[in-house]
Amino acid sequence: MDPLSLILIALAGVVVGILGALLGIGGGIFFVPFLVIVFHIPMHQAIAASIMTVIATSSAVASVNVGRGWSNIRLGMTLELSTTIGAIFGGVTANLVAASTLVKIFGFLALVVGAIMVRNTLSQNHTETLPEGADTGRLGGSYYDTAAGKEVRYRVKKPGAALAVSFLAGNISGLLGVGGGIIKVPAMNLWCGVPIKAAAATSNFMIGVTAVASAFIYFSAGHVQPSITAAAAIGVLAGSRAGLLIGDRIRSRWITRAFAALLLVIAVEMFLR
């Protein structure tokens, strides 16, 4: 790769990182198509680079989130048992499947993610808060919600369902190089009763470990292109950092809907390739 292309990839990474922070999703769903469509990078290499950016942002964001106490380590660790196994299956499958097939599967995922994004802008945060001092169970947790000015306590309902969804999310992550939070967060919130802040922080906490499980497979298969991967990771890191600073202020439904529409275009483009 020539230096100019690498700089462009890093800059694209910055944009993706900011987008991810603004939309509250990982940027992989935009980054993989970008590398494939604009730079004609082979699908497997694009997925490997994206997986690496997922690890970088998850680690960086988790290190910032720590002070807030939103992420639930016990719940995260438990669900990682199934996300990592799912990711290994996904990574192995990706290396058995032709690039053209992976591109089409990715197009389908872009469609699904776009739909979930629109749906999320329509639905409410679904949580039943336990009374003060109530038992949160083994997996439940609590955090102080500064916006509401009170402590939020919750139990985790249907842990079996959470494990199953986590397997699926890990599988998609390993197969297509995305984080998978877009699937886990609504599921944890709607089915398991985890407040959205805790679900998002816990999901982000899990994503890095999940991505590593498949990254080793892409690495040993020789799909990790060092210069592309490094440029991408550095760019996305810088972007997500910038996104965190501006993030909460301009999050809006219309931005989300605009990018859901962009995902539709990406889906069509990838189907037609």
């Binding site: 690890i55 998850s58 680690s59 990682e80």
Partner: peptide, 9 residues
Amino acid sequence: LLLTPVLRV
């Protein structure tokens, strides 16, 4: 970068 989440675990 790959070893960072492993260290976390």
